[in-house]
């Protein structure tokens, strides 16, 4: 079925099924970390997650119907935000910790060994606390992640050709489906109409914080790469080069 003909419930169950599997770093962690070893673990994990992120995006109903140029552009714009929201979701029940993967968990203080990363860890932990306070539900989380992807370049490009315009219109209709799905997920929580509206506002406002942390993270990673602290390669390199 086309996403426009799907009920919000159906749409959510499709994006729940699209969720990537749990991923392990599978490295022998030598503690204490050095700046280089921690950056290497973080980038290795990010590279593995990126491969799964592409398959995830393709499973979002309607995504592959967008032009290939739009698909590429969207993913290049939002990949670090998506990684960060996933990290927040994994960490939501572990105050003070960042659960990068089941075998790679860091305390805030462990950020001390990488120059400039503690500031980013603190922003990640603060946004995670907000999600904890709001008691973020899995259904809401998957909607927010799809929203980040589809919203990521809406205001940075304007369609020129007829083909671009068509893809843009498809994108807007797809965003409508995701917003409907999020509204439906919130409506299942037994809140008053006013509380539902407030919750929608609070959840979507958090996305601007995630964009901010992602920009900070992007600057940090490119400076680590420039200073040769870490060797960035493969898909991660391609995505990083696109954003800087």
């Amino acid at each position: 079925a086309h996403h426009s003909a799907m009920s919000p419930e159906e749409f959510i169950s499709r994006i729940m099924e699209a969720e990537p599997p749990e991923i392990y770093l599978m490295e022998d962690m030598k503690k204490p970390f050095t700046e280089a070893s921690m950056m290497m673990s973080l980038t290795n994990l990010a590279d593995k997650e990126l491969v799964l992120m592409i398959s995830w995006a393709k499973k979002i109903p309607g995504f592959v119907e967008l032009s290939l140029a739009d698909q590429i552009h969207l993913l290049k714009c939002c990949w670090l935000e998506i990684l960060m929201l996933g990290l927040m979701w994994r960490s939501v029940d572990h105050p003070g910790k960042l659960i990068f993967s089941p075998d790679f968990k860091l305390n805030r203080e462990e950020g001390q060994c990488v120059e400039g990363i503690m500031e980013i860890f603190d922003m990640l932990l603060a946004a995670t606390s907000r999600f904890r306070e709001l008691k973020l539900q899995r259904e809401e989380y998957v909607c927010l992640k799809a929203m980040i992807l589809l919203n990521s370049n809406l205001c940075t490009s304007s369609p020129q050709t007829a083909e671009e315009l068509e893809s843009r219109n498809k994108l807007l209709r797809l965003l409508d489906s995701v917003i409907d799905a999020l509204v439906w997920a919130i409506s299942k929580l037994g809140l008053s109409t006013q509380q539902q509206t407030l919750r929608l506002g609070h959840l979507t406002m958090l996305l601007s914080h995630i964009r901010h942390v992602s920009n900070k993270g992007m600057d940090h990673l490119s400076s680590m790469k420039r200073k040769n602290v870490v060797l960035v390669y493969d898909l991660l390199l391609e995505m990083l080069d696109a954003s800087t």
Binding site: I54, S55, K59, L68, Q71, I72, L75, D234, L235, E238
Partner: peptide, 13 residues
């Protein structure tokens, strides 16, 4: 061919 393009254009198994 970039890796992103390659991953986007391969058919799911």
């Amino acid at each position: 061919h970039t890796k992103l393009l390659q991953l986007l254009t391969t058919k799911p198994e």
